[in-house]
């Protein structure tokens, strides 16, 4: 199972990269970043998976003594947990920039922003 999710994650990463590099609309570029984020999180969580493991929460089904044999790896899960929240903040920041850019030029096409080119 973890192979399939790993391959799915990598393919979604590549799709997001393709969206970032080829689309012209700024909103679509931001959508590409969101897709990239999702793929990255899937890859990290599937690396953490241990075959036949349960969630790293020690309630009635998993006792303290055999925790190390039964649970999946909790460290990448904790990292992904914070990364998702940061992703929301960064997406909101990019969208605020996009809104400001649209107010300046009345256009969302990335090719109409050539102020620093000469």
């Amino acid at each position: 199972m973890e192979y399939i999710t790993l391959i799915t994650g990598f393919l979604i990463i590549l799709a997001g990269l393709w969206a970032i590099m080829t689309r012209k609309n700024i909103i679509r570029i931001i959508i590409g970043f969101v897709i990239f984020d999702t793929g990255l999180h899937i890859v990290m969580v599937s690396i953490a998976y241990v075959r036949g493991g349960t969630a790293p929460i020690l309630d009635g089904s998993v006792s303290i003594a055999d925790a190390a044999q039964k649970i999946v790896d909790p460290v990448p899960q904790a990292l992904v947990l914070t990364a998702i929240v940061i992703g929301l903040g960064v997406t909101a920041l990019m969208l605020a920039y996009a809104m400001k850019l649209h107010q300046e030029k009345k256009s969302l096409n990335i090719e109409s922003f050539k102020d620093l080119k000469w």
Partner: peptide, 11 residues
């Protein structure tokens, strides 16, 4: 992908 052979135990 090709070198990843799944985890059978924790790191």
């Amino acid at each position: 992908v090709s070198s990843f052979d799944g985890n059978s135990e924790l790191s």
